[in-house]
Computed example of a mutant assay.
Amino acid sequence: MRAPLQFVLDFFTGGDPVQPAPPASVAPTADARVPDVSSAPSSPSASVPSTGDQETPLAHPENSPWGFIHPAANRHAQLQGVTVSYRFERSRRKSIGFLVGADGLVVRSPNWVTMREVDAAVQEKGAWIVAKLQQFKERQTEQFHKAIEWRHGAEVPFLGRTVQLCVLERGVGRVLGQDIPPEQVLPVTVPPGASVTQVRDAAQAWLKKQAKVLFEERLHHFAPLLGVRWQKLSLSSASTRWGSARVDGHIRLNWRLIHLPISQIDYVVVHELAHLREMNHSPRFWETVGEVMPDYAERRKALRQAPVDLKED
Rank of each mutant, 00 (worst) to 15 (best):
A202K: 07
S195D: 14
F158N: 11
S109G: 08
K94H: 11
V167F: 09
V34M: 02
D36W: 01
Y296R: 06
V247C: 00
Q78A: 10
L233N: 07
E217H: 06
D248R: 14
E217F: 00
S45H: 09
T51C: 04
D103H: 13
P41C: 05
A238N: 15
S91E: 05
H250C: 12
Q140W: 06
H250W: 09
E169C: 12
R256G: 09
N111W: 04
A27L: 14
F285H: 12
Q80F: 00
R241S: 07
F12T: 03
E142D: 15
P23L: 11
P307F: 10
T56E: 14
Q140A: 10
P307V: 13
Q210F: 06
D31G: 01
S236L: 05
G52E: 09
E149N: 10
G160Q: 11
N111D: 13
V308I: 12
R87E: 03
V289S: 02
A30T: 00
Y267I: 07
P224C: 14
S91G: 12
E89I: 08
R92D: 15
H250E: 11
T141Q: 06
V269N: 07
T83D: 12
W150A: 15
A203Q: 03
P224Q: 03
Q135K: 06
D103Y: 07
E138L: 08
S38H: 07
P57R: 06
L235V: 10
S25K: 02
L276Y: 00
S237N: 15
P20F: 06
Q264P: 09
E124F: 00
R241W: 08
P61F: 06
H281S: 09
D16K: 15
V82F: 03
L214Q: 10
Q6Y: 05
I148C: 13
R218C: 00
A223I: 00
D53S: 08
Y86T: 03
V172K: 15
L207S: 02
K232A: 13
G15I: 08
V8Q: 11
K137I: 04
P65Q: 08
G81K: 05
V8E: 09
F98T: 10
G243E: 04
R151A: 14
R200W: 02
R90M: 02
K137C: 00
V18L: 08
L207F: 01
S85H: 04
K209L: 07
V163H: 02
E298S: 09
I265M: 12
E169G: 06
P23T: 07
V172A: 11
Q231N: 14
F98K: 14
G249S: 11
A72N: 12
T240I: 04
F12E: 04
G15Q: 10
R2N: 11
V130R: 08
D53M: 00
E149Y: 10
V26N: 10
D179A: 15
L226S: 14
K301L: 11
V100D: 04
E155I: 13
A194Y: 10
R252Y: 04
L105V: 12
P224W: 04
D201S: 04
A245R: 02
Q204K: 07
F222K: 08
F222L: 02
F68R: 03
R284W: 11
H76Q: 05
P4G: 14
D53V: 05
E312H: 15
S45F: 00
V113P: 01
H271S: 06
I265C: 09
P182S: 15
G97S: 12
W128H: 01
H259R: 10
R170N: 14
S109H: 01
